[in-house]
Design a binder for these strands. Structure first.
Length: 421
RNA sequence: GUGGGUGUAGCUCAGCAGGCUAGAGCACCAGAUUGUGGCUCUGGGGGUCGUGGGUUCAAGUCCCAUCAUCCACCCCA
């Protein structure tokens, strides 16, 4: 137990972390270009935030939350997603009183208690954006297009964008009514789960993968059939803007999404060949959420993308991000009498902005060279008694094997000039 | 929460129908003119065979339990 990590968690170790950083950097970069600012919210929040924000009937709240009571008797939950916390921060920091819209992005760990499998973990990582304060369908489209642009920049291919509209407060009750009318005579055909959904949230029956439910739902009125004129127009505008940007999409009437707060636009991006959990990102509009959480009536739209699944897809598509060398310059010593000189030289290299290292195991010169090679060092500086006496030292280019004798006091300048970063 | 697969060295695995001090490749460390890496050669360290019970003269090998892990369902990223 002492040497095994908790179930569903991962160590991101050297060799992997470089890829993570690269992806995260690409995300930060694209967000900045699209006019989004980073926000960092706590990893845990009051449990109530998720109960109210995500919705009591969702799987996340019903069975997947990491909830505990802290020493002050408060119920605390490790965030299972970051939209509700973003809304909370938006309100708490009075962003609604400032210039609108507010465009935020985030990146960080999320937690859901679930059985791990390919592409699913208890601690996983999401990057995402949220836009508050505008109901412009062009923003729904911006958010979607930006996500697709991000995947494209990572080099991902063969992704499928599914979009749908789940309606608003006006058409939802109509939908609900129609769905109940449709399913009432078919109740017996549904799985037990869906039978309870019938009362609580008939919309979710459409999302069920159970074969008999899918069959029973075959001719169910889709959310698209029930949209009010306003929602229908909104959806049409979203599609039109995606068309303007040549973003390909599939209209998926079955796409409902498991979180309660979505209204209007819902979308999900699927990747093949990463196992059963094929969704690598998803999001939508949530115009009622801010009010639900006690704020003014402010519309919002956003998405979250799963880093583990993105990385898994990249791996599956053979996209490799080269890990940088551990150090550029390795200082090799021959004989203990030069240890102090070498030690000082090492630090002078670092002070000059060069990534440098040396042996700390008292290894032979040969072994030091071997190690330097394994570290991927571009240059090796060799110092021994002769060099000390001479005042110069050979600098070996590990790629070409060529060596040059350089004066000890100008080694840093020589290496810096070689632009080895 | 449900179902199935797997657990032998750091990694990938072998170990046939239970029988001698548990193996290979790779990795790691050291050496091959005691001042020069990558290739090659030689040698070396390292395993409570996931854990706990049971069957047996004898268990890595069979049985049970447990834990971990992987995959799938549910749901989602």
């Amino acid at each position: 137990m002492l040497t095994t990590r908790p179930r569903g968690t991962n160590d991101i170790i050297p060799g992997e972390v470089e890829e993570w950083r690269w992806v995260e950097e690409q995300f930060a970069k694209i967000c900045t270009q699209y006019g989004y600012s980073e926000i960092r919210t706590p990893i845990f929040e009051h449990t109530e935030l998720f109960q109210r924000g995500v919705g009591d009937t969702t799987d996340i709240v019903e069975k997947e939350m990491y909830t505990f009571t802290d020493r002050g008797g408060r119920s605390i939950t490790l965030r299972p997603e970051n939209t509700a916390p973003s809304v909370r921060a938006y309100l708490e920091n009075k962003f609604h009183a400032g210039p609108q819209p507010v465009k935020l992005f985030y990146s960080g760990p999320m937690f859901r208690y679930d059985r791990p499998q390919a592409g699913r973990f208890r601690q996983f990582h999401q990057v995402g954006v949220e836009v508050f304060g505008t109901n412009d369908p062009a923003v729904d489209s911006e958010v979607i297009a930006m996500g697709m642009d991000f995947y494209k920049r990572l080099g991902l291919q063969n992704l499928e964008l599914h979009i749908n509209s789940v309606g608003c407060g006006v058409c939802r009750p109509v939908q609900r009514q129609k769905l109940k009318e449709y399913f009432r005579p078919r109740l017996g055909e549904l799985c037990r789960n869906c039978q309870s959904r019938f009362e609580k949230n008939p919309l979710r029956i459409l999302d069920c993968k159970e074969q008999r439910c899918a069959k029973a739902a075959q001719d169910a009125p889709s959310t698209l059939d029930c949209l009010c004129p306003e929602c229908a127009d909104h959806f049409a505008q979203v599609k039109r803007h995606l068309d303007l940007l040549d973003v390909a999409y599939v209209i998926n009437k079955r796409l409902v999404r498991g979180l309660d707060y979505y209204t209007h636009t819902a979308f999900e991006i699927m990747a093949r060949d990463i196992g059963a959990q094929s969704s690598i990102g998803g999001g939508g509009r949530y115009n009622g959420l801010i009010e639900i959480l006690g704020g003014p009536s402010v519309p919002g739209v956003g998405y979250a993308l799963g880093l583990e699944r993105i990385l898994l897809t990249m791996k599956g598509q053979g996209i490799i991000v080269g890990a940088p060398a551990k150090c550029d310059v390795f200082v090799v010593t021959a004989g203990s009498e030069v240890a102090d000189t070498a030690y000082k030289l090492l630090f002078s290299l670092r002070a000059a902005g060069i990534s440098a290292d040396k042996d700390y195991l008292g290894r032979s010169l040969r072994a030091q060279m071997k190690y330097a090679g394994k570290c991927g060092a571009h240059f090796v500086v060799i110092i021994g008694a002769e060099e000390l006496a001479r005042g110069t030292a050979p600098i070996r280019d590990m790629n070409t094997g060529k060596q040059e004798d350089i004066r000890l006091d100008s080694i840093a300048a020589y290496l810096a000039a070689h632009d080895i970063s």
